[in-house]
Write a protein that binds this DNA or RNA. Structure first.
Lengths: 147, 147
DNA sequence: TTCTCAATCTGCAAAGAGTGCGAACTAGCA
DNA sequence: TGCTAGTTCGCACTCTTTGCAGATTGAGAA
């Protein structure tokens, strides 16, 4: 995703207005690597701008996504997450705490896929799931505490 | 997923009862390749057994999934889909009509993944998305009809 | 700087997907 | 046949996201 300053220009160039709410969200998303949900962003935004509405957060995120500045990701934890990293990458999710990280996969072009049946593929997304370091060590400590 | 007869035994062996509702759902899911949603199964089930409740459909599907007889899949179309194919496979979804097909992928063990950062991976799922044959030809016909 | 108006913001209602709960019902063993 | 734990069903409710409408405001024009 572009920098807040660049986004300001892009929005104006597209006939969209640059409001304080949008600027705040540009800043909160830029360089953000935690893959927040709309609700999480709303909480952060509210702390800095009391009164901002959840509706506006959804609206702005949707705008950014339709401009290709943001990727919407669904890791099966209920709410959609937003990712400002628009590189070609995939994700890994911790099935215990829900943390999501970006992963880069090489060699996916050499996969042999059977059953595509005439589908014209536009995209392939790989989702890894497992246990993150923190949750793995928590499990270990609980186990030793228990026994 | 096992056959309805085998599931009957498995359920009883696990102390679960075999009701007409469950038998109906065993039958509807066995060999089912369309990846139905709970709502879709409920519609089919209702046609054969008026009065069956959506709650029971969810209940039974959840039971089957926790016994490993069914896989829950989320292709990002809103509702969870249920897949009686428990082989090691992946999915392709048509972004136009939502159709889901099973695909088999070879060579995924040779992928180079960067960024796993200590995660203990338990699963990797690949979701392809694109346009199915039917929707692709529909687009073509509409284009030619248009001129 | 002021004016204007389309774009935006906010709050609320509502839709879609699932889940929790409790009363009524029933499969399956004794 | 009776008993009882497991089920079913319907309803209320949660959660996420979207639709709507009136009030507000950004930003180009005057």
């Amino acid at each position: 995703m572009k920098s807040p300053a660049e986004l300001t220009d892009t929005f104006r160039a597209n006939g969209l207005k640059v409001t304080p709410q949008r600027q705040l969200l540009f800043g909160l998303m830029h360089g953000n690597t935690v893959h927040p949900t709309a609700e999480a962003l709303f909480a952060e935004a509210s702390a800095r701008m009391p009164g901002i509405s959840l509706r506006t957060v959804y609206q702005t995120l949707t705008d950014l996504a339709s401009m290709g500045e943001l990727r919407l990701i669904d890791v099966g934890t209920g709410a959609t997450r937003f990712d400002p990293n628009t590189d070609d990458h995939h994700h890994v999710v911790c099935s215990s705490c829900g943390e999501v990280r970006d992963v880069y996969v090489a060699g996916s072009d050499r996969l042999k896929v059977d059953g595509l049946d005439g589908f014209q593929i536009e995209e392939a997304s790989i989702l890894f799931s497992g246990t993150c370091v923190t949750c793995a060590s928590d499990t270990v400590s609980r186990a030793s505490a228990r026994g």
